[in-house]
Simulated scan of single mutants.
Amino acid sequence: MQTHDVQINGDLVRKRFVDGKPGGAEREWRALVLLAEHAPGLTPSPVEYGTDLVVMSRIEGTPLFLLPAVPEKELVEAVDRLHSAVPRQVLDQVPQRLWPVERIRDQLLAWAGRWQPKNELADQAVREGVRWLSRWEPGEHGVRPVFGAGDGNTANFLWDGVRVRIVDFEESGRSDRATEIAEMAEHVSCWVHGESELRFELDSAEERRLLECRRLFALMWVFLLKDEGPRNPPGTFMRAVGRALDRLS
């Protein structure tokens, strides 16, 4: 399902939001303006903003999910730069990312309430997930506020042979470092064709929050992939189930 229509005209990209969800263009524009000031060159440059429309510069690069091997060092550098770019006094004024972890937890519990039995392992993952979610309170322990893209899809990270740059900020906003790293680590695009563990510098409290958030996102993919379609290889759903069980154990 497409959430926007993208047209490329020379050095410009016109991205029109067509899914009817409010705020996507505003979040994208806000991110491009902030990062053009605080992390120039990391993202496209903002050119024009209108109703459900963002025009930005075109940047070259190959999406990471198309590469035979991920440039791990450069990817970590790009994510670190994104997270550290926006000064705290500015970040405090930025709205939260579209899906904060509390909202994801509540959504997963709602989905679990409507779960239709699939198979023994999938049903076990949902049961164990519900038990954990019902007692998990994210709180503020281990939270380091950062500007987050809000989307760990490796299609949004472009490699030009020298550096990694980032596109697609329609779900972006104020977040925390452990949540953003967890979302990337558990995103289906990061493990469906192979897997590598990226190493980020985190303190002990952030490491604990990272593990909790990885449980959350791994469980989320069980629900998102339950009606397996042609986009991913056969067996992707059961791989997601196995990952969720591993995280919950």
Rank of each mutant, 00 (worst) to 15 (best):
V13H: 08
A78M: 02
V167E: 01
G152C: 02
D106F: 00
S57L: 01
S84F: 05
S57G: 15
G235I: 07
M56F: 03
F65T: 11
E28L: 04
E197T: 13
W99R: 14
Y49L: 01
E171P: 09
E140P: 00
Q107H: 13
E186T: 09
V6Y: 05
T154A: 07
H83N: 00
G23F: 10
S175F: 03
K118G: 11
G139A: 07
A149D: 07
T51G: 12
K73E: 15
G24K: 06
V164I: 01
A182M: 15
D227W: 04
N156K: 01
E137H: 07
P145L: 09
R27E: 06
E195I: 01
G150M: 10
V79I: 11
G113R: 09
W115H: 03
N9V: 14
A240T: 02
L224Y: 10
E102P: 03
W111I: 02
R97H: 14
L67Y: 04
F17D: 04
P100S: 08
C190W: 06
R114E: 15
I166S: 06
R16I: 10
I8L: 14
V222P: 00
G61D: 14
Q116I: 13
K21G: 00
V18Y: 02
E206T: 05
G20H: 06
G194W: 06
G148H: 00
E206N: 05
A240R: 05
G194C: 04
G229V: 09
A69G: 07
V54I: 11
R243T: 04
R127D: 15
L133M: 08
T3C: 12
A78I: 09
